[in-house]
Design a protein around this nucleic acid. Sequence first.
RNA 1: GCGAAAGUGGCGGAAUUGGCAGACGCACCAGACUUAGGAUCUGGCGGGGUAACCCAUGAGGGUUCGAGUCCCUCCUUUCGCACCA
Length: 851
Amino acid sequence: MAEEKELRYDPSVIEPKWQQRWAADPKLYAAEPAGSGKPKYYVLEMLPYPSGQLHMGHVRNYAIGDALARQMWMRGYNVLHPMGWDAFGLPAENAAIKNNTPPREWTLANIAAMKRQFNRLGMGFDWATEVTTCLPDYYRWNQWFFLRMYERGLVYRKKSKVNWCPECCTVLANEQVIDGRCWRHEDTIVEQRDLEQWFFRITSYAQELLDGLDKLDGWPEKVRTMQRNWIGRSEGTEVDFFLAESAVNAQNDDCSPRTIPAGRRIRVFTTRVDTIFGATSIQLAPEHPLVIDLAGKDAGLRTQVAQLLDEQKKAREAGDVGAIEKHGVPTGHFAINPFNGERIPIWVANYILADYGTGAIMSVPGHDARDFEFATKYAIPIRRVIAPATPPANAEESELPFLTEDGILVNSGEFDSLTCEAAQKRLAQIAKEKGFGEATVTFRIKDWGVSRQRYWGTPIPMIHCKTDGVVPVPDDQLPVILPEQIEITQQGGSPLARVSEFVNVTCPKCGQPARRETDTMDTFVDSSWYFYRYTDAKNSKAPFDSATIKHWFPIDQYIGGVEHAILHLIYSRFWTRVMRDLGLITNDEPVTRLFTQGMVIKDGFKMSKNRGNVVSPDDMIARYGADATRTYALFAAPPDRDLDWQEDGVAGVSRFLGRVYRIVMKHAATARSASGAPSQPPAGTSLRLLRKLHQTIAKITHDFEGRWHFNTCIAAIMELVNELTAADAQLESGEVPAPAVRELLTNLVLLLAPFAPYLAAELWEELGGQAAPFRAPWPKSDPGLAKEDEIEIPVQVNGKLVNVVRVPAGSASEVIQAAALADEKVKSRIAGKTIAKVIVVPGKTVNLVVR
RNA sequence: GCGAAAGUGGCGGAAUUGGCAGACGCACCAGACUUAGGAUCUGGCGGGGUAACCCAUGAGGGUUCGAGUCCCUCCUUUCGCACCA
């Protein structure tokens, strides 16, 4: 009885013991240098924001990466598996305001707490390469890159309309605005403000970022589609319509008629220049610069335009631009179609966006659904200029409203009978020759606004001088250190602007007093290149060593949530290309394979504090241990699907680990006593168990490497353990010889090692194993042993299952057929009927077709 | 509206190329052991039927000797895009 008690699986004893031993061995999870001869494998999970608490989504993310890293070590790879902290950002500032704690202190304390959690979970990270983005030894390189990009014209400063989150009290990049709301505050509507801001010229790489997606076949199609949509390439033509001379509605301040000079132009962007003969109006965005001129002193028109703008803004804020009811007002002015000299009215409309294309369109109601809706509403003429290439049998179908498909030009003067494609080329060419337009490519993606009016971020290394304008901080003055003892409030712009020691500098050019830039960089700058720094985290001379990068990059496997599909993941791809063009690296893409894991759900909803359905990892570890918590996170669902957290399931996994513990502990002495190979080929129970073992190894190896179905891997280990448990008496009695026991138990432990490293380490030691189990070679399945000598073949009659017959493995069709026909149940089923056809699929099935 | 993914017991999920639907786990039921415990072990567990059998993978069609798997139509859920000219 006392002995039975000792066999109780107690993770609260085992896990801290190994955690201590591993902590004393800093080389345990370290990558080997480049020349080790092993193939390299860089596995990376997205680094966490140091909020102070890991949540279950983290546990899942890192359990996946850690299982992969351990298995790759076992398969003989030189694995780089680092971790760091995305440590700049607003929560630290908000906490500072709330608790009067300096952001740095708050952040570093959180990092320490989360590092403890990581270590308690037994995550195999190489902490020697840890990266903390809020420390000067990291962010100085953000500044260094900023300066290099400035030198190349990839950084510029511009006053423009920018997104402002009133909750964050700072500007946001377009990528950080989702359906008109802040990415961090989904209830907060983002405002537009006119501000002077720093931008990264990501649009210079728009085409390359788009083209690169085609080659990223290791990325989920979903993410690639999202990035394609975001980049939003559109091929078309820009055409100038000439303003017709007109005094209508235009008055000067003294109420005298105001004449807009003929010859001024309105440039429109269209993807369907072939329909230009069907243009019956020009539509301007309410914010189009020409609108003010056209309105002149016409107060009524100005009010109406203001209203249109307001409608557009409201629709944007509602995140529902598609549903806006189209409104417009005629300006009373006219434009001349450069191709046919036709005079068409100029309108202002609420559905035209100022920030796409040229902010002006030619409206072709005959061949565009939106234009048709608008023209119908305001009785603007609708004209057909494209006819179907093959006229429909039913004439009705060729009637308006409109044909948006390609066809043949009609009512288009000299261009009649051209195909749409040919007409587009021809018209663009003519426009170019005559100087009133050209073929262009438009992108939806905008330059990346990186200025943030907040404190806890990388200072932008620029100085404003009255004489010399904007002057970069010289390299030898880097890093520009973020001052620490400062007062933080959310009001009144950048907190740094109130720190006179920081602001007041001398101009590096003229030596006169100057003002330092007080905005900080977007935190997405930090995460755009952090994974390069891991390879050389202590380098104080450069951001990294280029030769080392060449060895480790691109990242073989990146794992994280899909929520970064267009934020972090597009910025990183941009940054990689910038570094390549700076001559620092040679790879075009940072990541070969991307995996986006599903969310962790509880009671049908994503875990969230608001909903009160959060499960704390610490709690789970305290109750069931880290191994059970991690293993459950991998067992409950395939990693790409959402995971429904059920605590009873964790208890079930914990019971399973207990069974593993007991069966191995009970027979460990027998296994240790084994010397050499078994004297005879296995038979009876030994054969059955060894066969199951080698089948299990084959299955797990396949599911792990090919499909990442960790749930079926773990289920297979459970099956093996169930068989071992059922054969407990035979193991005990010596019916299964010691070498077989050793083979069974050591391999079981090795198979378990990627999922439950603590238990594996404990049992490995008990079995007399050297080093750590996750540094031992991954088990190899012996196909001879795995092979069954008899298999079951289902027999169907007319497609219905009747019985199962046993035949020797590899039996020929005739043998299988004979066995099927000899079966009593089958016989009785086909009695009195004629066999019309027999289908035998060797190794699979027999189907008898009878009448 | 367009595009993608998904829909299997009471629950999470298996089913590798079209070949025994429900592996594995949870929950539940029965039993064993017992110094009573959130322990361990054994058996049962899709529905109907005493049984032989019959029915069953969102619904309906189809292809096939054979369909959860392939094709068509529809329904539901999730995600992405959506006046982008």
